[in-house]
Simulated scan of single mutants.
Amino acid sequence: MGVVIPLEESKNKQASVKPLVDLTKGDMERVNQLILSKAGSDVQMIPEVANHLISSGGKRLRPMLTLASAAMFGYEGEGHIKLATSVEFMHTATLLHDDVVDESDLRRGKSTARTIWGNQASVLVGDFLLGQAFKMMVEVGSMEALDVLATAASVIAEGEVLQLSVAKNMETTEDDYLSVIRAKTAALFAAAAEVGPIIAATDKATRSALRSYGMNLGLAFQLVDDALDYGGKAADLGKNVGDDFREGKITLPVILSYRRGTTEERAFWRQAIENGESTEENLEKALALITKYNGLKDTIARAKHYGTIASDALAPLPDSAYKSALLEVIDFCIDRVN
């Protein structure tokens, strides 16, 4: 698909995730080793399916948040490695399950596990990874960290069910949609950032600050993803532009364009999304309507709003290289649209 909506012009200096990568490099090497170890099994299909997704090139931002949020408060134990690995396993399990629910064929530019091994294997290997994640949480010995991550796992599942309940329903409101992404995406960002200060034995205010940072970063991250699906490039997305439209997903650019449209235009959206008429011709029309009603511009504005809240959450904390890196991650997530 060659037609995309032009996004904002690039800034002179793009924010980068590199400072966070550099600060957590040593610990991430240990996390990656533990990932490979804990994804192993005598049942041959388990490591095959798990490693297919684990090795597909994601940035592993969530476990880096755990490592950084522990190290920035002087934590010197081993627990952050296991918790970061648990976070990544929870994320990977969610992706395996998501691809089955969404019937997705591509993930990060590669065939999804479900298209190679089938839906049943994808779901069961996701369950295996969740089991391994909880074993590692228990080994860390922090009931508070276990509670935070267990609660996140429950909330993520609720988000999946909530998404099913609003799927292909053009009457979905912005508030409905924010509830979905708060549960499906932002909850794990929040938990990943909060467990670091928990095991570093910080005070409740600090834990709350990191939780707020993670939650709002996650919301901004997902809203930018929504915008990129209609205004990005396939090479950057790891999927085809317009895949959300083809799969009948209702995301914020669509919600805004539908709400602001004429009676005739709303009828088009219902036909395309609810009736599954997601032809390339209809995608062209959808892109035109999203442009007409500032669907991308306003989605990005929402993302920036949550990015500001994430930045403000960290403001009271002492300055450090870790704090600076976490702040730059906010800009990095939003700058992906440039």
Rank of each mutant, 00 (worst) to 15 (best):
245 F>N: 10
57 G>V: 10
46 I>L: 11
95 L>N: 04
318 P>C: 09
255 I>R: 01
335 D>A: 11
304 K>N: 15
329 V>D: 02
144 E>T: 09
80 H>M: 03
227 A>S: 13
219 L>P: 01
242 G>M: 11
29 E>G: 05
97 H>P: 08
290 I>E: 01
133 A>F: 10
232 G>M: 12
196 G>R: 05
273 I>R: 09
80 H>I: 04
284 E>V: 14
320 S>R: 02
201 A>W: 14
288 A>Y: 07
237 L>A: 12
8 E>C: 08
230 Y>P: 06
253 P>K: 14
160 E>Y: 00
272 A>P: 11
184 K>E: 08
74 G>C: 13
111 S>E: 05
66 T>M: 12
44 Q>M: 04
134 F>Y: 08
79 G>T: 14
11 K>V: 09
259 R>M: 07
330 I>K: 07
260 R>G: 11
315 A>G: 03
213 Y>M: 01
33 Q>N: 06
327 L>I: 09
190 A>I: 05
205 A>L: 12
219 L>S: 10
314 L>C: 00
55 S>E: 15
220 A>E: 00
44 Q>I: 02
213 Y>R: 12
273 I>W: 02
187 A>V: 03
62 R>K: 11
131 G>K: 07
173 T>S: 13
159 G>L: 13
260 R>H: 05
215 M>T: 11
13 K>M: 03
136 M>P: 01
138 V>D: 12
184 K>L: 04
212 S>F: 00
29 E>D: 15
263 T>R: 13
136 M>Q: 03
2 G>R: 03
55 S>F: 13
27 D>P: 04
267 A>F: 03
268 F>I: 13
161 V>D: 02
196 G>M: 06
263 T>C: 10
333 C>R: 05
337 V>T: 06
261 G>S: 15
173 T>L: 12
114 R>Q: 14
188 L>D: 00
132 Q>W: 10
2 G>K: 08
121 A>G: 08
260 R>Y: 05
81 I>E: 02
71 A>S: 15
90 M>K: 06
201 A>K: 15
246 R>Y: 02
277 E>P: 03
26 G>A: 11
330 I>F: 10
23 L>N: 08
167 A>T: 07
306 Y>N: 12
115 T>F: 00
12 N>E: 14
4 V>H: 07
6 P>L: 08
124 L>E: 01
173 T>K: 14
124 L>W: 03
10 S>T: 07
257 S>E: 02
5 I>A: 09
45 M>I: 00
189 F>S: 03
81 I>M: 03
99 D>L: 07
61 L>A: 02
32 N>E: 14
188 L>Q: 06
264 E>M: 06
116 I>T: 13
325 A>C: 14
14 Q>E: 13
165 S>M: 13
69 S>D: 04
154 S>W: 12
96 L>M: 07
217 L>N: 00
114 R>P: 06
193 A>K: 08
213 Y>D: 11
218 G>D: 07
297 K>D: 15
